[in-house]
Simulated assay, not measured.
Amino acid sequence: MTQAELDAMYQVPNVEWWTYDGYKAWLDNEKIELKKLIGEKSWTSGDGWFTWTQKRVDDAIIGYEGILANIKEGYKVSETMDGHNDFMMIYNPGEISKATSYSLDIHWITVKLLPLVHMIPRKSF
């Protein structure tokens, strides 16, 4: 198989990566928006229908703060892939050269961003 054939079969996506400052600015705004959801109903594939509570908001913020910490530590976190922001890719470039095999786990959470519901993947911490 030629390199051109391999490239055609496994196209590399066009990825825009979050910067620390960019993700922090998004998170600062998201904290405000999440608090507005308390008492609202939402749905995830893992939990089904639920009502947003302060605890659920706090847990979401903790997860997002974990991603911000990953970015600060040098992890690459995708903002968009091929212009889409419906899932997130996270990896540590420092571990790539050490790895002998790779796997990808995708975990989904649903975040209701008024007035739309978006699916956002979540990295397990």
Rank of each mutant, 00 (worst) to 15 (best):
1 M>N: 00
1 M>E: 00
2 T>F: 14
3 Q>N: 08
5 E>D: 04
6 L>G: 02
6 L>F: 12
7 D>T: 13
7 D>Y: 14
8 A>L: 06
9 M>F: 00
9 M>R: 00
11 Q>Y: 04
11 Q>D: 03
11 Q>T: 08
13 P>M: 03
14 N>E: 15
15 V>A: 09
15 V>K: 08
15 V>F: 06
16 E>D: 13
16 E>G: 03
16 E>A: 09
17 W>D: 14
19 T>S: 11
20 Y>C: 05
20 Y>H: 12
21 D>T: 07
24 K>A: 12
26 W>D: 11
26 W>R: 10
28 D>W: 03
32 I>K: 14
33 E>I: 04
35 K>S: 14
37 L>Y: 11
38 I>K: 11
39 G>Q: 07
39 G>L: 07
39 G>S: 07
41 K>Q: 02
42 S>H: 11
44 T>Q: 04
46 G>E: 01
46 G>Y: 00
46 G>L: 00
47 D>E: 14
49 W>H: 12
49 W>F: 14
49 W>C: 06
50 F>C: 01
51 T>L: 08
52 W>Y: 15
52 W>R: 08
53 T>K: 11
55 K>Q: 03
56 R>Y: 08
56 R>M: 03
56 R>C: 01
61 I>D: 03
61 I>P: 05
63 G>V: 01
64 Y>L: 02
65 E>C: 11
70 N>A: 13
70 N>Q: 13
72 K>C: 11
73 E>W: 03
73 E>Q: 05
74 G>T: 15
75 Y>E: 01
76 K>T: 10
76 K>A: 13
76 K>H: 15
77 V>G: 04
78 S>R: 14
80 T>S: 07
82 D>A: 15
82 D>R: 14
83 G>H: 07
83 G>T: 05
83 G>K: 07
84 H>Q: 11
84 H>L: 09
85 N>F: 02
86 D>V: 05
88 M>F: 06
89 M>P: 06
89 M>Q: 15
90 I>R: 10
92 N>H: 01
93 P>K: 13
93 P>I: 10
94 G>M: 03
96 I>K: 08
96 I>T: 05
96 I>R: 08
96 I>H: 04
97 S>Q: 09
98 K>V: 03
98 K>N: 09
99 A>R: 06
101 S>A: 15
103 S>R: 07
104 L>W: 14
106 I>W: 06
106 I>D: 03
108 W>P: 04
108 W>D: 12
108 W>Q: 08
109 I>C: 02
111 V>I: 11
111 V>M: 08
111 V>S: 12
112 K>T: 05
114 L>G: 05
117 V>G: 08
117 V>Q: 10
117 V>L: 06
118 H>E: 09
121 P>K: 02
123 K>Y: 13
124 S>G: 11
124 S>L: 10
125 F>H: 13
